[in-house]
Structure formats: structure tokens, C-alpha cells
Design a protein around this nucleic acid. Structure first.
Lengths: 339, 339
DNA sequence: TTGAAAGCGCTAACAT
DNA sequence: ATGTTAGCGCTTTCAA
């Protein structure tokens, strides 16, 4: 059941069968119909290997992610997958977990021969990696990060951070803590904008940042919980906390509850993402469209492959979602109850 | 920069270069070294298309999922990806969202030519689909579902359900509701065991099930919230609820809180999964190892490809995790507070 | 509009 | 231990 069989059954040469099947012009309508008919009868499926060898392309796009169990990645991948499938490309998934697999990947750059384009999903790269990437000759697009001057989709991290911080400031908070997400091993380009927003918002409000109020942890809920513990241990704990993600924020809320503190009466909490469970847990947050970022990245990759022009930088909007975890600071006495 | 170049630079024939590079026996050590040296110098990467064409294999395994944004899938995919990568196989991801893409997929069964094996992740198939799958000639393994007589890994859904139900019954609950998860469009083989456990546990406790206490919805948190609303609307609402997943359970908790009811004093809730956020929200649940199921499925697929024998059915254990969302039913008066 | 023939980059007998 | 020779299944000039 290969092209030759189809050709024979249709009474034409393999060359004509090939042209008919891949929609080339200059094929008589009757011929084309006969070939398709034969293909259908034989349940013919072209061998991508052979097609690829002959054409010099693979029909695949590689997607690189640092993580899969976190909400943003699943959602973005879902959007990306849908678009690629519509575009007729297969999706090759590379999850580069630890520094080791990461090294190996960039050293041998398997992508070079296995895919026509690569999409980096929330995957920050360092200088050396970017250089290697630049030289592999296939199109590159990023989502959720910026990678050199390659096309990318993402939110404006700084703006998102400002939405969260300004909300807290408007409520009247002056002593605001922040839980910074970073994962030096996995995500070399952490969302610096989310941190700069913290400082800028405080500055605009005339508040001098207290370094003790800023604690850096990984992206997991558990580490969010730990970070909140640190913040609570301070002599003068914050009345509000701005976390870099909802997962971290929910960890923080858990620690607060365990400590017998009320949210938002004693401490307000706001995150970023609008994770599906944020609505369930009544968490105030800054919503970002994850699936949409994946879709856009997919479209950009497809456009690049088609030789069409591609927007170099697209930014998707975020939106403050006020729910029950944020409120005005308590007038007084709050710190006493803690004892 | 292809094999021929490497061979030339090493001063050997392409055949020898091929043997040296792919670790065949009967190659002189010096020759092997020279070839590797040449390959390194040229930054040679073999063309998978050519290798595949010549060898008749692809080096890829296809993974089919109905969903990506739900916790179980991300975690399972992560485990699976790790194992496949260690086994040197690439992972081709197919997310079959709606009935349409599903149809298309099984009709043309692209897998047939694109991968050496397929792993179905939490993907139940119907009769017709199973038949087609049986005929594609590549190895098939399932995780989280059973697919005909193909090898599979999963939890014992019935046992898991019993752990949840027995916990509730031990606490003294007699009027227990259940939120059944199903998605007829995506997941044709819903976890029937989780439902049968509900009935069996009640039967063992001498309780006649009340059909009104069982509501079926999709897997999303939002629908869990809606289902709980229905249950609360009953003339005689349950004192405890067993949900098919944590995501659903968390939706239920949200509805209870909004209704001014306390968890677990007024209503107990238990889920299944041990989602990372379950710990953060103090949800009692039955833990299942998602990443491990992915890993095992990967190993089974790899073993199958290597021609090794594969366990037909492996079951991974679940574990009851009692947290703060479940407790004894309130002695009396509960229903009054509701008004 | 169609066919013949060369070749994409690699592997695997079969020789040597 | 290594080289020669045929393909693997498709696309694509180049001719007709």
C-alpha cells in the first residue's frame, strides 16, 4: 500500500499519482479523481519519512517546555496543539526538565533534523542556548518569554504586575509583601516584569521597598506556602501579598488560614493567571489568556513556515479580576490577634 | 553535513561510518573512534527521515490525550515524556479534543506511518475505534483506561471509590451524595468503577441509594460547583459528597461556602486524585500517582518495541488522604441553619 | 497533461 | 573488519 500501488490501480505513473494527491496544478480532473479513488480504496497513507526525505521537510514542529503539570503550560499547549493540527503539522513535544536534559538537547539540537520549526513555550533560554538556536536554521517562535529577536507572544508582565499592585495600593495597603517566582534551573528568563512592577508601584505610591518583604521561591504551591510562612515570621508582617502566580498565591492562603488569619480581613492576597481553581477558591488575580497565547504562537509558526510575514512581538492583554481574597487593610489591632 | 561527509572525513565508506555511529559490533575500535571524531567535528546529526525510511521505523511514539489542562494529564504526560526521552524516542502529541478531530484521527489513523507505538493517556475508545486501532499493526498501551486487551496501567477505580466512600461511612454519614464525572464526547470509557464503588459501599452499609443524590457532570470545577447546587436544592440534601475528582470536589466546596455552609461541619467533601492544590485547600481525597502511571506506560511501550514481554495489566495503588474537608455528620439541626 | 529517471540520506545484505 | 550495491517511498526536473 504505497504510492506505486495507488498509481498502478489508477493506471497512471507514480509521478502523476504524487501530483494528483498533493494537489498540484496541471493534472486532469478525471485523472485526479481516479487517483484519489484508488487511494481511498487502498486506505493509502503517505509515508512521512519518504515525503520528508524527498522534500527536505518534516511536517513537524517541535515544542519545548520546562514543565507540564503547571496550569499555564497545559492550557498553552492545548491551544498550540489545536492550531498545529489544523495546519496539518505534527507536534513533537520536548520537555526539558533538569539541567542535564537541557544541556543534552541544546548540544545536539535534535530539532535541527526533526522539525521545521520550534516553539518555545514559557521556556527562557540563556545566551549560549540562544546562540545555538539561532544557528539551526529553522524558524523559532516563543510564547510566554522573549527569545532574542525571534517572534513572540506574551503578556506584558510589568503591566500585569501593576494591575495587581495598584489594586492593593488602591485598597489602602502600604505594607505589601511579594512572592517572587523563579526557577534558575528551568526557566532562565524569569518574568522580571512582575518584579519590576512591584518596585515601580511602590515608588509611585511613595513607599520605600523593604527587602525583607520580598521572598523568592519556585513556582509550586508548596513553596508559596513556605514563602508566606517567612513573611509571617517578620516582626512587621505585610497586610497584603502579591504573588507571581495563582498556584503560589493559593499556597500563601493556606499558610494564612493555618495561622488562624483571615483572608482578606487580616491579609489580602492577589495572584496572576486566573487559574481555573482561582475562581473556585475566590482568589483575586490578574487573568491572562494561556490557550490564546499557545494559539497565537502556533499561527506565527505556521505563518513563518508558509513564508508569510510574522509580527515580531505580540502582546495579549491581562485583566484584573477582583474576588474575595483582597480587601482594605484592617484599621488596627490586626497584629495583636496573631499572638 | 551528512553521513557521506563524515565517512569521507574519516576515510571510510558510508557503510562503515553508519555501523560505527550506530554502535554495531564488528567495527575496529580505532575506526569507530575516527568516525565519531569526524562526526563531532562536523556537528553531524543523522536525518531521522532517512534512517526511518531505510530501517522501516520512525523512532517516535504517538501519545493520544483527550485533554491537557487537567492535572492528571499534565502529570502523566510528564512521566511518560521522561521515560521516552531516556529510551531515545521522540514523543508525538495528539490531542483529540472534539468528536470531529477524533473521527478524523481514527479514520486516517496517521499513527500508522508516523510512530512505532501509541500510548493512549486517559483516552477511552469505543468499539469501532478499538477495532481500527487493533489493525494498525503498531504496539498500543493505555494508561488510565483499559483498551481491549492491550497492556495498560491504571488505578483500581472501584477500590479508590471504596476508599472514599468507606471513609465517609465510617465517619457516620448515611445520606451521601455523589458527583459523577463523564464526558461522553471525549472520554467514552468513563471510570465506571468510581460509580460502582458508590453503590457497593452503600449496599454494604445497608443503605438504599437515592437516585436524586447522584448527579453527573463533566470534569471541570465549574460543573462540580453546579452539581453541588443541584444537590443543595434537594428537599433532603446530603451530609457528605463523594466526587470523582478533586477538581470537581473543589467546585462543590465553593458552592457550599457560597451557600453559607461549613465544610466539614455541615457537609463533608472528598475527591479523588490528590491534586497539588488539594493539599492547599485542605481537601480530603484518594491519592493516585499520575506521573508514575505515565512512566509505567512509557516503559511498557518501550519494552514492547524491544520485543520484550509486557505485563498486560498493571494496577498502581491509591491511598486515602484525610484532610480537613471531611468529618462526622452534625448530630442535628443542620438542616435548619440552611434557611 | 503525463511519464522516465534521478536522488533525498541512510541501512543492510552480500561480498571481500 | 570494511567496502559495494541495492533499495526504503516519495518528489521533481526534464522530456515527450
Amino acid at each position: 500500500m504505497n504510492l506505486a500501488d495507488v498509481a498502478r490501480r489508477a493506471g497512471v505513473s507514480p509521478a502523476t499519482a504524487s501530483r494528483a494527491l498533493s494537489g498540484h496544478p496541471h493534472v486532469a480532473e478525471v485523472t485526479r479523481a481516479r487517483v484519489w479513488e484508488a487511494a481511498r480504496a487502498l486506505e493509502y497513507v503517505a509515508s512521512p519519512e519518504a515525503t520528508g526525505l524527498a522534500r527536505g521537510t518534516t511536517g513537524r514542529v517541535a515544542v519545548v517546555v520546562p514543565h507540564l503539570a503547571r496550569w499555564w503550560f497545559g492550557a498553552a499547549l492545548e491551544g498550540l496543539g489545536t492550531v498545529l493540527r489544523e495546519g496539518g503539522r505534527d507536534l513533537l513535544l520536548y520537555r526539558l526538565g533538569d539541567a542535564g536534559s537541557r544541556q543534552a538537547f541544546f548540544d545536539e539540537l535534535p530539532t535541527r533534523r526533526r522539525a521545521d520549526a520550534v516553539v518555545l513555550l514559557g521556556f527562557g533560554v540563556d545566551e549560549r542556548e540562544r546562540e545555538r538556536l539561532d544557528r539551526i536554521g529553522v524558524g523559532i517562535v516563543a510564547a510566554g518569554t522573549r527569545v532574542g529577536s525571534h517572534p513572540s507572544v506574551s503578556i506584558d508582565d510589568h503591566a500585569a504586575g501593576r494591575q495587581a499592585m495598584d489594586h492593593l495600593l488602591h485598597l489602602g495597603h502600604r505594607r505589601i509583601g511579594t512572592i517572587v517566582a523563579a526557577d534558575p534551573e528551568l526557566d532562565l528568563a524569569q518574568p522580571a516584569g512582575r518584579s519590576s512592577a512591584y518596585r515601580a508601584a511602590l515608588a509611585d505610591a511613595g513607599i520605600t521597598p523593604d527587602p525583607a518583604l520580598s521572598v523568592t521561591v519556585t513556582w509550586s504551591p508548596e513553596s508559596g506556602a513556605r514563602a508566606m510562612g517567612e513573611l509571617l515570621g517578620l516582626a512587621d508582617p505585610p497586610t497584603a501579598v502579591y504573588a507571581h502566580s495563582d498556584e503560589i498565591a493559593l499556597g500563601a492562603v493556606r499558610t494564612l488560614r493555618r495561622a488562624g488569619l483571615r483572608v482578606p480581613e487580616d491579609v489580602s492576597v492577589v495572584g496572576i493567571d486566573d487559574h481555573p481553581l482561582a475562581a473556585m477558591t475566590d482568589l483575586s488575580t490578574v487573568a491572562q489568556p494561556a490557550a490564546e497565547q499557545g494559539e497565537l504562537a502556533g499561527r506565527m509558526a505556521l505563518a513563518g513556515l508558509a513564508g508569510e510575514p510574522v509580527d515580531p512581538v505580540v502582546t495579549v492583554p491581562t485583566r484584573l479580576v477582583i474576588r474575595g481574597s483582597s480587601g482594605p487593610p484592617q484599621a488596627a489591632g490586626r497584629r495583636w490577634r496573631r499572638s
